[in-house]
Simulated scan of single mutants.
Amino acid sequence: MPKYIIEREIPGAGALSPQELQGISQKSCGILRDMGPQIQWLESYVTDDKVYCVYIAPDEATLRAHAEKGGFPANHIARIKTVIDPTTAENQ
């Protein structure tokens, strides 16, 4: 199943309290449960004014439906083609 990264513009995201982040996470998980196993949230990275979320989903439309149901912005969605890390530099 394809993996995607979603860029969400959320002014002040980096200043959200642990309780606020927990509430957002709980809301997202509840919607994911209702949508079924075809969409999975892997992790998110919170910066000052954006949140970058990594999901597995069949297509972009499914991700947009999740965002709409949760009232979350989905300013940019990109399909991840491959993942590299420092071990990629090593000889095989």
Results as ranks from 00 to 15, higher is better:
residue 1 M to V: 11
residue 3 K to E: 09
residue 3 K to G: 02
residue 4 Y to M: 03
residue 4 Y to T: 00
residue 6 I to H: 00
residue 6 I to G: 00
residue 6 I to M: 07
residue 7 E to D: 08
residue 7 E to A: 10
residue 8 R to W: 00
residue 11 P to G: 06
residue 13 A to T: 01
residue 13 A to G: 02
residue 14 G to A: 03
residue 15 A to L: 10
residue 15 A to C: 05
residue 16 L to V: 02
residue 16 L to R: 01
residue 16 L to P: 01
residue 17 S to R: 06
residue 17 S to P: 01
residue 18 P to S: 01
residue 19 Q to M: 13
residue 19 Q to L: 11
residue 20 E to G: 07
residue 20 E to V: 05
residue 21 L to I: 13
residue 22 Q to P: 03
residue 23 G to C: 08
residue 23 G to K: 12
residue 24 I to S: 08
residue 26 Q to I: 07
residue 27 K to C: 05
residue 27 K to G: 02
residue 27 K to Y: 07
residue 28 S to E: 12
residue 28 S to F: 07
residue 29 C to N: 13
residue 29 C to L: 15
residue 31 I to G: 01
residue 31 I to K: 04
residue 32 L to A: 05
residue 33 R to Y: 09
residue 34 D to Y: 08
residue 35 M to K: 06
residue 35 M to T: 05
residue 36 G to L: 07
residue 37 P to R: 12
residue 38 Q to D: 15
residue 38 Q to E: 15
residue 39 I to H: 02
residue 42 L to H: 14
residue 44 S to T: 05
residue 44 S to F: 02
residue 44 S to C: 10
residue 45 Y to T: 08
residue 45 Y to V: 04
residue 47 T to S: 04
residue 47 T to P: 00
residue 47 T to E: 06
residue 48 D to M: 11
residue 48 D to S: 11
residue 49 D to P: 00
residue 50 K to E: 05
residue 50 K to G: 01
residue 50 K to Y: 02
residue 50 K to H: 10
residue 51 V to A: 02
residue 53 C to V: 02
residue 53 C to D: 02
residue 54 V to K: 06
residue 54 V to G: 04
residue 55 Y to S: 02
residue 55 Y to I: 04
residue 56 I to F: 10
residue 58 P to S: 09
residue 58 P to W: 09
residue 59 D to I: 03
residue 61 A to C: 08
residue 62 T to S: 15
residue 63 L to E: 03
residue 63 L to T: 05
residue 65 A to P: 00
residue 66 H to E: 08
residue 66 H to N: 11
residue 67 A to P: 02
residue 67 A to C: 14
residue 68 E to Q: 15
residue 70 G to D: 01
residue 70 G to E: 03
residue 71 G to A: 12
residue 71 G to H: 13
residue 72 F to S: 14
residue 72 F to D: 04
residue 73 P to H: 04
residue 73 P to A: 11
residue 75 N to R: 03
residue 76 H to A: 15
residue 77 I to Y: 06
residue 77 I to F: 06
residue 79 R to V: 10
residue 79 R to H: 11
residue 80 I to W: 11
residue 81 K to R: 14
residue 81 K to Q: 14
residue 82 T to D: 15
residue 83 V to R: 14
residue 84 I to P: 02
residue 84 I to D: 06
residue 85 D to T: 14
residue 85 D to Q: 11
residue 86 P to Q: 12
residue 87 T to W: 09
residue 87 T to R: 13
residue 87 T to M: 12
residue 88 T to W: 12
residue 88 T to Q: 10
residue 88 T to L: 08
residue 89 A to M: 13
residue 89 A to H: 10
residue 90 E to R: 15
residue 90 E to G: 09
residue 90 E to I: 12
residue 91 N to H: 12
residue 91 N to Y: 13
residue 92 Q to M: 08
